[in-house]
């Protein structure tokens, strides 16, 4: 594998994992615009554990994942009191606090960044991405995932059906946090360097875009979204000019007009599902009153 493709696959793997961390909350109807903050906790957690404390690599990952999950769990209770635009802003503010702390703490390298000694090559990244993808697909197929998707569509009715909305959302935040922590740890160890400036609001915006452009209705969404977002700018780069971001922005706008629910919708998955090819014919659309 050439260095160029190894680099792209590494970024793609981290993006896929990162996108799934945000997806797990979005699938239950909660928008998180603070992804970079959660990823930063994982990255700095392992950087501090392995490089400063000299702990082994596995301990670094364990610390990164549990620390991020724990912080997510704690922040979930206040943040989930908020709704819609307020939640978007609350998570955004949280990420700003995290990057501010990273900038201000000398032990975390401050504005100079921090070198991470243990290196993780590209293969473990790819396997982690496959593993996380499988995990999220399983989660969405479970009864718990059914409750998440129901909350995404209609929180009131889900609650009346007996779904404990708050518990499901806190669990989603915690699971999402753990996955974000993993993506941060992989980033830190693959690039062997962390700096606060990387975990910017723009990163949070982009990872939320992976999820929303991909589609929040099925677990395919973030996978397709992050592949789209990682590869399209690369292909545009082959054209060789800074026009690529202009084209890319225009593509985003067009996507929202043409497919506002994301590239992959539930209906699309149902249409493409092999088990459906042999299923009963759908009932004829009879003339009936709409609402």
């Amino acid at each position: 594998m050439s260095g160029y493709w190894a680099g792209i696959l590494a970024i793609l793997s981290i993006n896929v994992i990162f996108a799934y961390s945000i997806y797990v909350t979005a699938a239950a109807g909660q928008l998180n615009l603070g992804g970079a903050g959660f990823q930063a906790i994982g990255a700095y957690g392992t950087a501090y554990a392995t490089t400063t404390l000299g702990l082994p690599l596995w301990a670094g990952f364990a610390i990164a994942i549990t620390l991020t999950a724990f912080v997510s769990f704690l922040i979930a209770f206040p943040v989930l009191r908020t709704r819609g635009v307020y939640m978007v802003l609350a998570t955004y503010a949280f990420a700003q606090v995290v990057s501010g702390i990273a900038l201000y703490t000398p032990a975390l390298g401050g504005a100079m960044g921090k070198v991470v000694t243990e290196y993780v090559p590209v293969w473990p990244l790819i396997f982690s991405a496959i593993g996380v993808t499988f995990l999220v697909f399983y989660l969405m197929a479970s009864r718990f995932g059914l409750a998440m998707r129901a909350l995404h569509d209609d929180e009131l009715v889900s609650t009346i059906m007996g779904v404990n909305a708050r518990a499901v959302q806190v669990a989603c935040f915690t699971i999402g946090g753990a996955i974000a922590g993993l993506s941060g740890a992989l980033y830190a160890h693959h690039f062997a360097f962390v700096e606060a400036q990387y975990f910017s609001p723009l990163l949070s915006i982009f990872v939320l875009l992976f999820v929303l452009i991909g589609g929040t209705q099925t677990a395919w969404g973030p996978l397709i979204g992050s592949v789209f977002f990682t590869l399209v700018p690369e292909f545009l780069r082959l054209g060789g000019s800074s026009w690529r971001y202009v084209i890319f922005g225009a593509v985003i706008v067009a996507m929202m007009i043409l497919r506002p629910e994301g590239i992959v919708t539930r209906t699309l998955v149902a249409k493409l599902s092999p088990s459906r090819w042999f299923a009963k014919k759908p009932v004829a659309q009879e003339a009936s009153l709409e609402r």
Binding site: H152, L212, S242, V246, G249, V253, M256, E261
Partner: peptide
């Protein structure tokens, strides 16, 4: 041109995503 087919919890993010697209277009132009 914005028309959502069914209301759901993440629907209000659609114009937000479009505006990020425009942010990229304007800034890079």
């Amino acid at each position: 041109y914005f028309k959502a087919k069914h209301g759901d919890a993440t629907e209000h993010a659609i114009p937000l995503v479009s505006s990020i697209g425009f942010l990229l277009v304007f800034e890079h132009l």
